[in-house]
């Protein structure tokens, strides 16, 4: 076997050089090997995943947007309350008349005074524009000027049973109902809330003396029934309050004062 091996020849041969193929040839052969098995270059593995990952990302993004829109869609309970201003009511009135002339004609004789009373009363009502989206919270009392809490027109006082409250407006309600059950219910709810909040704000903000002065005004203007009802409400709220002497006659009326 030794005649078939010679370490010195082998060692000498190794020193002749260790040539290698050029890199370009390596690249060409490796590229051919990849093509043969349908694989791209190394980045082909990433590229293979690029399409499915992109599709998945688009689907997830779309779903998240849809879910977010659904969650943030305002509904009746969570809608941001729109302040009911006279301008808004004025804008709505013609549209309702167009939509349902019969209702508008029937409501017209009452609507104007009621709407006027409402607008005047609403001027004194708190503006909920800055309320958070999910809860209807009236503007804090401090934000209102004392003067705004006062009724500005005798007619408003006559129409409103509660101090600074929003008067009932059947015509408005009827008109709103014609605009679809959902919208009507929504607006009715908003009005009720506005009314309730206005009443609560009025009762909360008005001093006992101011309330009594208003009762005195009602009685002086001949609204005896309203004055009596308001007085009853006053006594219910302030049972121990002693009516000042200077207001007693005006509030209670001549007969009661005596």
């Amino acid at each position: 076997m030794a005649e078939h091996e010679d370490p010195r020849v082998s060692a000498g041969y190794r020193q002749l050089g260790a040539e290698s193929p050029p890199e370009a040839l390596d690249a060409a052969i490796l590229a051919a090997s990849r093509r043969a098995v349908g694989a791209g270059p190394r980045r082909g593995r990433l590229r293979r995943w690029a399409l499915p990952v992109s599709i998945a990302a688009v689907v997830v993004l779309t779903m998240s947007i849809v879910v977010r829109i659904e969650l943030e869609r305002p509904d009746l309970e969570t809608a941001t309350p729109v302040p009911v201003t006279p301008e808004v009511l004025e804008q709505k009135a013609p549209r309702r008349a167009d939509e349902n002339e019969a209702d508008a004609a029937r409501a017209k004789p009452k609507e104007r005074p009621a709407a006027k009373a409402k607008s005047e009363a609403l001027e004194a009502a708190p503006a909920p524009a800055a309320a958070p989206a999910r809860q209807f919270v009236p503007e804090p009392p401090a934000a209102r000027s004392p003067a705004s809490a006062e009724p500005t027109a005798p007619s408003a006082l006559g129409a409103a049973s509660a101090p600074a409250g929003v008067s009932e407006a059947p015509a408005d309600r009827a008109g709103l109902a014609n605009q679809g059950t959902g919208r009507a219910a929504s607006r009715a709810a908003l009005e009720d809330r506005a009314k309730a909040s206005a009443e609560a704000a009025g009762k909360r903000d008005e001093s006992p003396r101011g309330w009594l002065e208003r009762i005195a005004r009602l009685r002086r203007e001949g609204h005896v029934k309203e004055a009596d009802e308001s007085l009853a409400a006053f006594r219910k709220r302030y049972p121990a309050y002693e009516i000042p002497k200077d207001l007693r006659e005006a509030v209670l009326g001549t007969a009661q004062a005596e």
Partner: peptide
């Protein structure tokens, strides 16, 4: 493995044999 589609297996195989084979041919 390369026959079954593993391109990386060929790269290993090529790296092992390219030098000796090239010198044999050269």
């Amino acid at each position: 493995a390369y026959r079954d589609g593993d391109a990386a297996a060929f790269e290993t195989l090529y790296a092992r044999h390219k030098g000796p084979l090239f010198r044999y041919v050269l």
